[in-house]
Write a protein that binds this DNA or RNA. Structure first.
Lengths: 158, 158
DNA sequence: TCCGTATATTATGAACCATAACATACCGAC
DNA sequence: GTCGGTATGTTATGGTTCATAATATACGGA
């Protein structure tokens, strides 16, 4: 349901258009598609690329750490780690227990820099028409929305 | 990759947290999960529910109309239409060609009202901490982000 | 030594989206 | 009137993503 947006047809009313929730969804899908396009030349998808950035910012983390921090199942990010490792971007050194500390190889650092620039290009592209003084505020509001949406119960006042 | 958010652990840096693109993604996923939870008692998922709202606001549309307006492939929303029809919520009357005009049955109107209230509850829940005077602005900014992200080329100036 | 915990990995299935192929009804040209 | 093109709906199929369960292994403590 609902992949990208784009101003469709007139004469058809869009009851979802006035809802913040669905504008969020639409914007998110569009931004992800743009990011995927930006990353295509590097042979990475958004998940792999963000994993690379995350490891670059937290050298020595394990898959479990990543799973907790990014709220992803370790089983799901295992293929991503495997792909990055096979591409020669990661070093894996044994830690305590079965844990494996992940860090960037020299090659990985180069790739990470390219990924970082691709993310920056994407950010510039999508915030082109967002007033600079509103950007931080918007990020903060999105964070709040996130927390409120995740709160289990319905809506207790505050 | 990345299902819900929630403040994870400290001592781990989150390079994605400062990016509007990923906050959008996280907020969107969280909001969708909250909406799905809100709709669960009605036996509908967000796609089916929004389809019902859309038909309610545009009685007589065909699947092709919906596909164009919502940017979904007709092949993908066929199962949704079928489910709503089987649930007795839709009337289907033959139109021109193979077209079938969709509208709400009496039962569908009742269900649509419940769906509408569920959407409203969800909106209230996620905008609890969004200042009222910022809401419209935020929707407009999201619309702009959407359009800019969808623009095919990279970033021509403006 | 043995049990419990934590981690990584594999296998499997569900949900969603995209594409392609097919069937059918209208419309216009000849 | 027939024929070909177009639009629509439907079915089938594959890919991607995510969740869950099961398995294997390493550490720590009773």
């Amino acid at each position: 349901m609902m992949t990208p947006p784009e101003p469709p047809d007139l004469s058809i009313s869009d009851p979802l258009g006035a809802m913040l929730g669905f504008q969020l969804r639409r914007a998110s899908v569009a931004v992800m598609m743009a990011l995927a396009e930006e990353l295509a030349t590097l042979g990475l998808n958004p998940g792999e690329a963000s994993l690379l950035l995350f490891i670059g910012a937290n050298e020595g983390v394990t898959q479990s750490d990543i799973g907790r921090a990014m709220r992803a199942q370790p089983a799901n990010l295992q293929p991503l780690v495997h792909k990055l490792w096979q591409a020669g971007a990661l070093d894996r050194v044994a830690g305590k227990g079965r844990a494996i500390a992940l860090s960037l190889s020299d090659e990985g650092r180069v790739l990470c820099e390219k990924v970082s620039r691709a993310f920056a290009r994407n950010e510039a592209r999508i915030t082109r028409r967002v007033p600079a003084e509103r950007r931080a505020e918007m990020i903060e509001l999105l964070r709040l929305i996130c927390m409120d949406a995740c709160r289990p119960g319905g809506r207790e006042t505050e």
